[in-house]
């Protein structure tokens, strides 16, 4: 095994790097705006979650005539999930579109490629889309 103490001494500098400890950043002139935007983002998620539950209940009542908490928890349906995803994206655009003037759903939702700024790159993941 390598010399642990020598490496530890060499790594002392990392404790001063930004991000080594968790930050509490402020991105707006008034910190309350940071908090209110966060609350809005989370609250919309809770609204969507309720809406999903309503949609599942309606679907189960229409197709099976009965609904129980256990049936809701176990519910899986691919075509329902695809419709739900489209509605969710529209829901997000409708509520938050004003933040940037106009926004659209990116065709390429590969987060890793986006992060590195190589969105135009072709790679073989394209032929393995889920």
């Amino acid at each position: 095994m390598g010399d642990r103490s020598a490496l530890e001494a060499e790594l002392e500098y990392v404790k001063d790097l930004p991000g080594f400890s968790r930050t509490n950043p402020q991105f707006f002139s008034d910190p309350m705006i940071d908090k209110l935007l966060e609350i809005t983002l989370l609250m919309a998620g809770e609204i969507w979650t309720n809406r999903d539950r309503h949609m599942v209940m309606e679907h189960l009542l229409a197709t099976e005539g009965v609904v129980t908490p256990e049936r809701i928890e176990a519910f899986k349906d691919e075509s329902f999930a695809q419709r739900s995803e489209q509605q969710r994206l529209q829901f997000i655009q409708r509520i938050f579109g004003c933040l940037y003037g106009d926004i659209d759903v990116p065709e390429d939702r590969n987060h890793f490629r986006w992060l590195t700024g190589k969105e135009g790159a072709q790679d073989t993941t394209d032929s393995h889309s889920p």
């Binding site: 979650t49 999903d52 969710r88 994206l89 997000i92 759903v105 990116p106």
Partner: peptide
């Protein structure tokens, strides 16, 4: 469901 929403939120509002 909440986490599906967060994933889509990041696509639309970040990417």
């Amino acid at each position: 469901t909440f986490l599906d929403y967060i994933a889509d939120l990041r696509s639309v509002l970040m990417m």
